Simulated scan of single mutants.
Amino acid sequence: MKLRYAGVCRVCSADLPAKTPAIYERSTKTVRCVEHAGASATDEPAEARVTVPDPASTSEPTVPPTPEPVIDTGTAGASARREFERRKQRREDRVREKHPKIGGLLLALSDDPQTTTAWNTGALGEERLGAGLDSRGSEQLRLLHDRRIPRSRANIDHLAVTPTGVYVIDAKKYAGRPHLEVEGGILRPRVEKLLVGRRDCTKVVDGVLKQIEVVKGVLGDSVPVHGVLCFVEADWPLIGGSFTTREVAVLWPRKLYSRLAAADGPLDAEAIAAAHQQLARALPPA
Rank of each mutant, 00 (worst) to 15 (best):
A286M: 07
Y167D: 06
V34N: 12
E192W: 02
R91K: 12
V11Q: 12
A131N: 09
L209Y: 02
G77E: 14
V250T: 10
E213T: 10
V223T: 14
Y24G: 02
D157K: 07
L283H: 10
L133P: 07
G103W: 11
I186N: 05
K255H: 06
R26K: 10
V166Q: 08
A76M: 04
Q114I: 10
E233Y: 06
A76C: 11
V161D: 00
G207F: 01
V250F: 08
T162K: 02
Q89N: 10
V205A: 03
G122T: 06
R49C: 02
L141C: 12
G184D: 11
A154W: 07
V34W: 07
A282K: 14
P224Q: 05
G241A: 04
G103L: 03
A175T: 15
C12H: 06
A118L: 12
K19R: 15
L143E: 05
D54E: 12
L251H: 08
A131Y: 11
A160P: 06
D146I: 13
G122D: 10
S13K: 09
M1A: 12
R190A: 07
G184Q: 11
G185R: 15
A273E: 00
K101I: 14
C33K: 05
L267Q: 07
L143S: 09
W236E: 00
L251S: 13
G197E: 05
R177Q: 15
C230T: 10
R86S: 08
D264H: 13
A160E: 10
R82V: 08
V182G: 03
L143A: 07
D206A: 09
T115C: 02
L141W: 00
L144V: 07
H179K: 11
A273Y: 00
A39S: 15
P178V: 06
L209A: 13
T42P: 01
T62W: 13
P65T: 09
G241Q: 05
E60R: 13
T66G: 01
P285C: 15
T51P: 00
T115W: 07
R26F: 08
V161Q: 00
P163C: 09
L251Y: 00
K98F: 03
A108M: 11
R81Y: 08
